[in-house]
Structure formats: structure tokens, C-alpha cells
């Protein structure tokens, strides 16, 4: 998957739509590097049904834990067992080998609320700026 052709959530999942309304889900390289070394991934079972922005799994990194949110509603049709058995591939290659699940979408219209790549990049920039502002304010307060 090429990041430029993916769409993104505010929670840093990416979606790439394959033929037949199947959405491939993963996390962005920004999220993977923020989490650091990933040691465990818990993913839903094939056949389960999920709603948009439901937590569908968990990522354990050495330092922290994060939920995986489903960017779309639908049925889980594939799970990346390679990523489950060797979670470090998510750090190495979050857009290709490190994908999590494939979802047969109920409503491709849900994709409209997601960021495209340039919006996501802008969003990351804004977040960093906000974090910096917050730091400044904290310093001013003290």
C-alpha cells in the first residue's frame, strides 16, 4: 500500500480500498514510531462484524498499549497472522507487511469522513504544533 493512496483516521489507522469494497487496515508509520517496539497484537476473528470506530484490537508496545479502531463498518474477512506472530513487522513496514485486517465494507460512504493523505499530514503537523503550544503554556503558567 502506498501511504499517498490511503485514507486515515484521527487515531492513526490507515485504510486502503481493494477491489470488491474490501478495506485493508493498518496503522501509520507515525503511529508505529510513536508506539515504539511492538511486542503483541490482538486482532478480531475472521467473520466478526465491526462498526466504524469500534475498538477492534490492541497493540502492546514495550512502553505503552493502544487500541486499534476500525475506520469502517463491515465484516472481518482476513487477519494478518504474520503480524500476530511477529509484531515487529508493524514497526518495520506498517503499510505493507504490517497490515492488520481486511474488512468487507457495509457502506463505502463511511470513507468520506476520513482524512486523505495530505489532510492527515496536515493533521499531524497541527497536532505537533498544538503539543508545542501546550508546552509553552505550561511554562508560562509556572
Amino acid at each position: 500500500m502506498v501511504p499517498e493512496e490511503c485514507q486515515f483516521t484521527k487515531e492513526h489507522e490507515w485504510v486502503f480500498v481493494e477491489e470488491g469494497n474490501v478495506a485493508v487496515i493498518g496503522i501509520s508509520d507515525y503511529a508505529a514510531s510513536e508506539l515504539g517496539d511492538i511486542v503483541y497484537i490482538e486482532l478480531p476473528e475472521v467473520g466478526s462484524h465491526v462498526k466504524q470506530m469500534d475498538p477492534i484490537g490492541t497493540i502492546e508496545a514495550v512502553k505503552t498499549v493502544a487500541d486499534i479502531f476500525s475506520p469502517v463498518s463491515g465484516e472481518i474477512v482476513a487477519v494478518n497472522t504474520d503480524a500476530v506472530s511477529a509484531p515487529e513487522i508493524v514497526n518495520k513496514d506498517p503499510y505493507e507487511d504490517g497490515w492488520f485486517v481486511k474488512i468487507k465494507m457495509n457502506d463505502p460512504g463511511e470513507l468520506d469522513v476520513l482524512f486523505d493523505h495530505s489532510e492527515y499530514t496536515e493533521f499531524l503537523g497541527e497536532q505537533e504544533a498544538a503539543d508545542a503550544d501546550e508546552d509553552d503554556m505550561e511554562e508560562e503558567e509556572e
Binding site: V39, Y40, E42, T58, E60, V62, V65, P87
Partner: peptide, 11 residues
Amino acid sequence: GLEIEGRMIAR
């Protein structure tokens, strides 16, 4: 000391 079954982390 405890060894946890699987790879989840007990924090």
C-alpha cells in the same frame, strides 16, 4: 516474579 502466558504485558 511472574511469567505471563502469551505476549500481553502486565503493567
